[in-house]
């Protein structure tokens, strides 16, 4: 079984690599075919392993959209489209979270990611690269290493899933948290009691990052002579 999974994931990794932007159009098409094949096999495998699974549910829909959008984020040539697919991905994940009754988390995801962070991304992308990606952007994509890392991560995850799926060790799915309307409480109370130190440390880190960013980005007042000398 692990061999089969590893084979499928390797296939997926190869397909993804082929589908990465920068290659020739037909190579990329081949990559997509490979990816689709790997996905189909994986789906079939999962369906066989989990007898009661219903692939027609909302979960499957959201999950498929999420996977597709995630792939497009990294395979699309234009940064703006990548960002838009990212937003689509976030919506799919939001759907998944809503299915898990984690409404607060889902809304927070939309507000923070789609509403703020990605708008900033789009903003920056629009400002930065009007015609085509800069050479350093193209270079830094490093499709080989990216695919390899993702592939390793997926192997580890699959290993876990496989362990989880072995019937002897199967544990019942954790039930949704009892009082559904209290999800805000369910998130908020632990944040301010159990994890309060962690939260503070994270806050501190973010503050440090913010200050650092400002320090880097600050325009230093230069005299004219200096600025001319720089050029």
């Amino acid at each position: 079984m692990p061999t089969l999974l590893i084979a499928i994931l390797t296939l997926g990794a190869v397909g993804l690599f082929l589908a990465m932007p920068g290659g020739r159009a037909d190579t990329r098409r081949v990559g997509w075919v490979v990816l689709a094949a790997a996905g189909a096999v994986l789906l079939a495998l999962l369906l066989r392993l989990v007898p009661g699974a219903d692939p027609r549910g909302l979960f499957a829909g959201f999950a498929l959209v999420a996977v597709f959008a995630a792939l497009r984020v990294i395979t699309h040539g234009k940064p703006v489209y990548s960002a838009l697919y990212f937003i689509l991905l976030i919506f799919a994940v939001t759907g998944l979270l809503v299915l898990l009754e984690a409404t607060f988390l889902s809304m927070a995801l939309v507000i923070i990611y789609a509403g703020a962070i990605l708008v900033t991304y789009v903003f920056v992308i629009m400002l930065a690269q009007q015609s085509r990606p800069a050479p350093y952007d193209v270079k830094s994509r490093e499709p080989v290493w990216g695919c390899l890392a993702g592939f390793l991560l997926l192997i580890l995850l699959a290993r876990q899933i496989e362990l989880f799926l072995v019937p002897a060790q199967r544990t019942p799915l954790p039930a949704p948290i009892a009082e559904a309307p209290g999800t805000i409480e369910a998130v908020g109370v632990p944040l301010l009691t159990e994890y309060v130190v962690a939260i503070q440390i994270i806050g501190l880190l973010l503050l440090a990052a913010l200050v650092g960013a400002i320090a880097i980005a600050r325009r230093r007042p230069t005299t004219r002579a200096e600025s001319e000398g720089d050029e």
Binding site: V80, L84, I87, T103, F104, S106, M107, A108, V110, I111, A114, G115, A116, V119, V122, F123, M126, A180, P181, T183, I184
Partner: peptide, 23 residues
Amino acid sequence: NVGFLYLLAVGSLSVYGVVLAGY
């Protein structure tokens, strides 16, 4: 049960129409 957080979320999306139109 997230109430107007939802409003905030979808309200924040309206920017995309404008930004994408501009782009």
